[in-house]
Amino acid sequence: IDMLKSMHGTPYWMAPEVINESGYGRKSDIWSIGCTVFEMATGKPPLASMDRMAAMFYIGAHRGLMPPLPEHFSENAVDFVRHERPSAAQLLKHSFLTRSH
Protein backbone atom coordinates (compact mmCIF):
# COMPACT_ATOMS: atom_id res chain seq x y z
CA ILE A 1 0.00 0.00 0.00
CA ASP A 2 3.01 2.31 0.19
CA MET A 3 3.43 2.42 -3.57
CA LEU A 4 1.07 3.59 -6.29
CA LYS A 5 1.77 3.07 -9.98
CA SER A 6 0.69 6.24 -11.73
CA MET A 7 2.38 9.44 -12.87
CA HIS A 8 1.06 12.71 -11.46
CA GLY A 9 2.63 16.12 -11.00
CA THR A 10 4.97 18.56 -12.67
CA PRO A 11 8.20 17.08 -14.06
CA TYR A 12 10.54 19.44 -12.21
CA TRP A 13 9.35 18.01 -8.87
CA MET A 14 8.93 14.37 -9.94
CA ALA A 15 11.04 11.75 -8.23
CA PRO A 16 13.04 9.38 -10.44
CA GLU A 17 10.84 6.41 -9.54
CA VAL A 18 7.74 8.34 -10.60
CA ILE A 19 9.28 9.27 -13.95
CA ASN A 20 10.45 5.69 -14.49
CA GLU A 21 6.98 4.46 -13.47
CA SER A 22 8.39 2.10 -10.87
CA GLY A 23 5.97 3.38 -8.24
CA TYR A 24 5.24 6.25 -5.92
CA GLY A 25 5.70 6.22 -2.17
CA ARG A 26 6.75 8.28 0.81
CA LYS A 27 10.26 8.72 -0.56
CA SER A 28 8.75 10.38 -3.64
CA ASP A 29 7.17 12.99 -1.38
CA ILE A 30 10.53 13.59 0.32
CA TRP A 31 12.02 14.21 -3.14
CA SER A 32 9.34 16.83 -3.81
CA ILE A 33 10.04 18.53 -0.47
CA GLY A 34 13.70 18.86 -1.45
CA CYS A 35 12.68 20.36 -4.80
CA THR A 36 10.32 22.78 -3.07
CA VAL A 37 13.03 23.94 -0.65
CA PHE A 38 15.38 24.34 -3.64
CA GLU A 39 12.79 26.51 -5.37
CA MET A 40 12.13 28.57 -2.24
CA ALA A 41 15.87 29.20 -1.93
CA THR A 42 16.62 30.00 -5.57
CA GLY A 43 13.29 31.17 -6.99
CA LYS A 44 13.08 28.31 -9.47
CA PRO A 45 12.90 24.51 -9.30
CA PRO A 46 15.96 22.34 -9.87
CA LEU A 47 16.68 21.92 -13.60
CA ALA A 48 14.46 24.89 -14.51
CA SER A 49 16.95 25.79 -17.23
CA MET A 50 15.83 22.64 -19.08
CA ASP A 51 12.49 22.23 -20.79
CA ARG A 52 10.01 19.87 -19.12
CA MET A 53 10.80 16.79 -21.22
CA ALA A 54 14.57 17.26 -20.91
CA ALA A 55 14.21 17.59 -17.13
CA MET A 56 12.17 14.37 -17.00
CA PHE A 57 14.80 12.49 -18.99
CA TYR A 58 17.59 13.90 -16.84
CA ILE A 59 15.91 12.97 -13.55
CA GLY A 60 14.96 9.52 -14.80
CA ALA A 61 18.39 8.79 -16.27
CA HIS A 62 20.42 10.15 -13.36
CA ARG A 63 18.28 8.44 -10.70
CA GLY A 64 18.19 11.34 -8.32
CA LEU A 65 21.40 13.22 -8.97
CA MET A 66 20.17 16.79 -8.70
CA PRO A 67 22.06 20.07 -8.87
CA PRO A 68 23.21 21.36 -5.48
CA LEU A 69 22.11 24.64 -4.00
CA PRO A 70 24.43 27.51 -4.95
CA GLU A 71 27.52 27.93 -2.79
CA HIS A 72 26.24 30.94 -0.86
CA PHE A 73 23.63 28.83 0.99
CA SER A 74 24.39 27.43 4.41
CA GLU A 75 25.79 23.94 4.87
CA ASN A 76 22.55 23.04 6.70
CA ALA A 77 20.42 24.08 3.72
CA VAL A 78 22.67 22.27 1.24
CA ASP A 79 22.57 19.11 3.34
CA PHE A 80 18.77 19.33 3.70
CA VAL A 81 18.22 19.18 -0.07
CA ARG A 82 20.97 16.70 -0.89
CA HIS A 83 20.09 13.86 -3.29
CA GLU A 84 19.84 11.18 -0.59
CA ARG A 85 16.30 10.89 0.77
CA PRO A 86 15.91 10.43 4.51
CA SER A 87 12.56 9.72 6.12
CA ALA A 88 10.19 12.50 7.13
CA ALA A 89 11.03 11.77 10.78
CA GLN A 90 14.74 12.24 10.03
CA LEU A 91 14.08 15.49 8.17
CA LEU A 92 12.07 16.88 11.08
CA LYS A 93 15.17 16.38 13.27
CA HIS A 94 17.51 17.94 10.71
CA SER A 95 19.43 20.97 11.97
CA PHE A 96 18.05 23.05 9.06
CA LEU A 97 14.64 22.83 10.75
CA THR A 98 15.59 22.56 14.40
CA ARG A 99 18.26 25.19 14.89
CA SER A 100 17.16 28.14 16.99
CA HIS A 101 17.10 31.58 15.37
Rank of each mutant, 00 (worst) to 15 (best):
S32G: 09
H83E: 13
R26W: 05
R99S: 14
R63V: 05
F38V: 09
T98W: 06
P70G: 00
W31A: 01
I1Y: 07
R63M: 07
M3F: 13
S74T: 12
H83Q: 11
I1L: 11
G25E: 01
T10Q: 01
R85S: 02
R82L: 10
Y58G: 01
H101L: 14
S28C: 10
I19K: 02
P70R: 04
L4C: 14
M56S: 14
I59T: 09
S32H: 04
D79C: 08
M50L: 15
E17I: 08
Y24D: 01
R85Q: 08
F57G: 12
R26M: 06
L92V: 00
F96T: 15
V37N: 06
S32C: 11
R99I: 09
P68C: 09
F96E: 08
P45E: 05
D79Y: 10
P16R: 07
K5F: 13
S100R: 10
A41G: 07
M56R: 10
T36N: 11
P67M: 10
A61V: 12
Y12V: 04
M7E: 09
H94G: 07
A55T: 01
G34I: 02
I59R: 01
V81N: 03
G34Q: 02
N20A: 12
D79E: 09
G64N: 08
G64F: 00
A55W: 00
I19R: 04
P68L: 09
Q90P: 03
N76S: 14
S100M: 09
A88H: 01
F80E: 04
M50T: 06
T98V: 13
M3L: 15
W13V: 00
S100H: 11
V78H: 05
A89V: 08
A54L: 14
I33Q: 01
P46N: 05
L92T: 00
Y12S: 06
W13M: 00
S87G: 07
P70C: 03
M14L: 15
G43W: 03
V37P: 03
E21R: 08
T98C: 13
S22A: 12
M53F: 13
G25Y: 00
Y24H: 05
D51H: 11
K93G: 00
G60H: 04
F96L: 13
K5N: 13
L4D: 15
T10K: 01
K5S: 11
M7G: 03
